[in-house]
């Protein structure tokens, strides 16, 4: 009879912490998926005079072009034909107002960019922007 209160106080805190820890990890991992879309292998050219953009149109399609000319969208490698199909489907679905952001490595030769630009033009999209690292203060998107 005397030992009973002592036994009740032995709550398994360690397992509770384990569960909380697992939950935190789950939420952290699922919340950062959006950041992984950026192609870290691309080193952008520097823009000294252009202001940095704060907001981006959520419809923007970002096309990454690596220094070897390989193209990907959200790290999904694409041939030019596949890119053409995606952009054509986008125009059919959302119109030709969809902005395109070309994130090209600073060492890429323009020949590779030109091929991408031709595909963009053929799809009928015209709101094209080239990404660069801004060294100026931030401002709203043009």
């Amino acid at each position: 009879m005397r030992r009973r209160p002592q036994e009740e106080l032995e709550t398994p805190v360690a397992s509770l912490i384990d569960v909380v820890f697992l939950l935190i990890i789950f939420f952290v991992v699922t919340a950062t998926i959006d950041r992984d879309v950026v192609d870290d292998t691309i080193h952008l050219a520097q823009a000294r005079f252009s202001p940095a953009v704060d907001k981006k149109d959520p419809r923007t399609i970002t096309i990454n072009v690596r220094s070897n000319g390989r193209v990907n969208i959200a790290l999904q490698p694409l041939t030019l034909n596949q890119l053409q199909q995606i952009l054509t489907a986008t125009v059919a679905e959302s119109g030709n107002q969809v902005p395109i952001l070309v994130r090209a490595d600073r060492n890429t030769i323009y020949h590779e960019i030109d091929k991408v630009m031709e595909v963009i033009g053929k799809a009928g999209l015209y709101r094209v922007r080239l990404a660069a690292v801004a060294t100026e203060k931030k401002s709203a998107s043009p």
Partner: peptide, 9 residues
């Protein structure tokens, strides 16, 4: 921070 340079094709 990125700058986006708009161009006409």
């Amino acid at each position: 921070s990125e700058a986006h340079l708009a161009v006409n094709l």
